[in-house]
Amino acid sequence: MRLSPDEIIFWQNGLFKLNATIAFTWALMIVMVVGSAVITRRLSASDERSHWQNLMEIIVTGIAKQLEEVGLAHPRSYLPFLGTLFLFIAVASLGTIVPGYEPPTGSLSTTVALALCVFVAVPAFGIQAQGFLGYVGTYVQPTFIMLPFNLISEVSRTLALSVRLFGNMMSGAMIIAILLTITPLFFPIVMTLLGLLTGMVQAYIFTILASVYIAAATRKLAGPKHESAPPHPVSIETA
């Protein structure tokens, strides 16, 4: 039983290896970057513009709006990181409609990598927004006793992020693989559709959680504690 595309290794030289996860990630990167470059090559600032440009504008502004609703004051500063996070996970899930494709997000290595990126990005953005001492000070809020709990929370949520995404994506691919062996016709297609939906939801959840963490880190502690809490009670814990 294969749980991760990491296990499919095309080429290996000592520590360096080219497995399916990395290969499909590159493929996705090429598709996304080339697609973006083609669409944005001839952008129009007038009222008449291409359908693709419209689509891209809708996606970009939609993400920016979501980030703003989460509580990020200047969503454009965080748009490249968080938007790419969403688009990468979403496109990775969308790819499952292609036969023989293995979503890179179905690898715990990928999800851990993404969670680590968030893990680093949160303090980085926090320090950028309120300075080193200001950000570090948030770990001893409301009292010094809370420091270990804050640190544990920081690590555990990163772990939760990665495991959540991995579990969902892996399970989806796994179910399809299992169903293919049992009922090769029709039913896997329905499950694929369900998997697409799950993948989109996961992309959304991952991005929103990362946004909330960043929003919490970049928010200045000006008033009472409850005011600095995220505006949405985002404590989404999915199966």
Binding site: I22, M29, S107
Partner: peptide, 28 residues
């Protein structure tokens, strides 16, 4: 190794997307 590679891949992707998607679209 895959984790590190994927992290690097992701950061490269962030930069490329910023370069080819977000900036031109937002500018437009």
């Amino acid at each position: 190794f895959t984790v590190v590679a994927q992290a690097i891949n992701f950061l490269i992707l962030v930069w490329l997307m910023k370069r080819f998607l977000y900036r031109p679209i937002l500018n437009a």
